[in-house]
Amino acid sequence: MKSTENIWHEYHMKLTAFIRGKVAEDVVDDLLQDVFIKIHTRIDSLKENKKLESWLYQITRNTVIDYYRSRRPTKNLPDWIEQPQHDEKETIRKELSSCLEPMVKELPDKYREAVRLSELEHKNQKEIAEMENISLSGAKSRVQRGRALLKTMLHDCCQIEINHNNTLVSYKKKNKYCKYC
């Protein structure tokens, strides 16, 4: 087994060049130092000397990745982006739920029942297939088609805003004479 000092003499220039190609010049020496600290503390975990070089580069790659992860900025949302408070979210959810009920009633029978069982009674598609006496793929198809019809009806009626977390933020009725809302 090679000592850390021998590894330094043989590989520090190669590893420096590798790191230099990945990060700004002012952090190369710091990262190289981190790499050699990891090498020194983990050298006993290396089983085969012939895998030394790939092991060294793996440590170096991981150190560079850790460097970039630690620098990832955490940004607060700008003040002009208002996030609805919990009460607002609940109000929006209740209002849209009241719109969905008449929409579900408008669905063709087979889709209405599949959506009702899936979304309201929280049955899985296998259970729906058994209850409706249809194949599993038939149940999946009915649930998907029912959801798609509901989505179309909802988008015809309302303009919906969803954030990057796929959470409903707001909605606005497109037409005040919508027959559902």
Score class of each variant (00 low, 15 high):
V104L: 09
V64G: 10
T63L: 04
E106G: 01
E5Y: 06
C178A: 07
I39A: 05
K110A: 08
E121G: 09
R69K: 10
T41H: 12
S135Q: 09
E127P: 05
N165S: 01
N133L: 07
R93V: 01
R116E: 07
T63V: 08
V64I: 11
K151F: 12
P102I: 01
K176V: 10
K47E: 10
L96E: 04
I37R: 03
H40M: 02
S3I: 08
R145K: 12
E25T: 14
V169C: 02
K151R: 13
N166F: 02
Y11R: 11
S70E: 12
S137N: 10
A17D: 14
T63I: 04
P78T: 11
E113T: 15
D66T: 05
L168M: 12
I92Y: 01
L149I: 13
E119W: 02
R71E: 09
D44R: 06
K172T: 12
Q159A: 10
R20T: 12
G138N: 10
V28T: 13
I39C: 02
E161I: 09
V28Q: 10
I39F: 03
V143T: 15
N163M: 03
K89T: 07
N165C: 00
R116F: 15
V28I: 13
P73K: 15
H9R: 11
L100C: 07
K179T: 09
L117H: 06
F18T: 05
K151N: 14
E10P: 01
S137V: 11
T91V: 04
S118D: 07
L31F: 07
I37D: 02
H12V: 05
W8I: 14
D156G: 11
G146K: 04
E48A: 14
P108C: 03
N163C: 05
Y67L: 03
P78D: 14
S135G: 15
A129Y: 02
Y180W: 15
W8M: 14
I65N: 03
P73G: 04
E25Q: 14
M131Q: 11
D87K: 15
S170D: 08
K51P: 03
N124A: 02
R72P: 00
K89V: 10
A17L: 14
H12G: 00
S97D: 04
E130G: 01
E106S: 11
L154E: 01
